[in-house]
Simulated assay, not measured.
Amino acid sequence: MIRPFVKMNGAGNDFVVVNALEQPFRPTEEQIRSLADRASGEGFDQLIAIEPSDSADAFMRVWNADGSMVETCGNALRCVGWMLMEANGADRVTIDTAAGPTTAVRAGDRRVTVDMGRPRLDWTQVPLSEEMDTRGIELQLGPIDDPVLHTPGAVSMGNPHVVFFTDRQDDGFVAGSGSLVEHHPLFPEGVNVGFAHVLDRDRIRLRVWERGAGLTRACGTGACAAQVAAVRRGLTDRKATVVVDGGELVIDWDQANDHVLMTGPVEIERTGALPF
Score class of each variant (00 low, 15 high):
1 M>K: 00
3 R>F: 08
3 R>I: 06
12 G>N: 05
16 V>E: 08
17 V>I: 10
20 A>D: 05
20 A>K: 03
20 A>M: 03
21 L>I: 00
38 R>M: 09
38 R>E: 03
38 R>L: 04
42 E>I: 15
51 E>R: 09
51 E>Q: 09
51 E>P: 00
53 S>H: 01
53 S>R: 04
58 A>Q: 03
61 R>F: 01
65 A>C: 07
66 D>S: 06
68 S>A: 15
70 V>W: 07
77 L>A: 11
82 W>D: 03
85 M>K: 02
85 M>C: 13
86 E>I: 08
90 A>S: 15
90 A>F: 00
91 D>R: 07
92 R>T: 12
104 A>R: 05
107 A>H: 05
111 R>H: 12
111 R>G: 04
114 V>I: 13
118 R>D: 02
119 P>V: 13
135 R>Y: 04
135 R>G: 07
150 H>S: 15
152 P>S: 13
154 A>N: 11
158 G>V: 06
164 F>T: 08
166 T>P: 00
169 Q>G: 14
169 Q>N: 08
172 G>K: 01
172 G>Y: 03
180 L>R: 14
183 H>D: 14
186 L>P: 04
187 F>I: 06
190 G>Y: 04
190 G>P: 03
191 V>I: 15
191 V>R: 11
192 N>A: 06
197 H>S: 12
198 V>F: 13
206 L>R: 13
212 G>F: 13
212 G>E: 10
212 G>N: 09
215 L>S: 06
218 A>G: 00
223 A>E: 09
225 A>E: 08
232 R>H: 11
235 L>M: 15
241 T>I: 06
249 L>R: 04
249 L>W: 03
255 Q>L: 14
262 M>W: 12
263 T>E: 07
266 V>C: 13
266 V>G: 07
270 R>N: 15
273 A>E: 15
273 A>I: 10
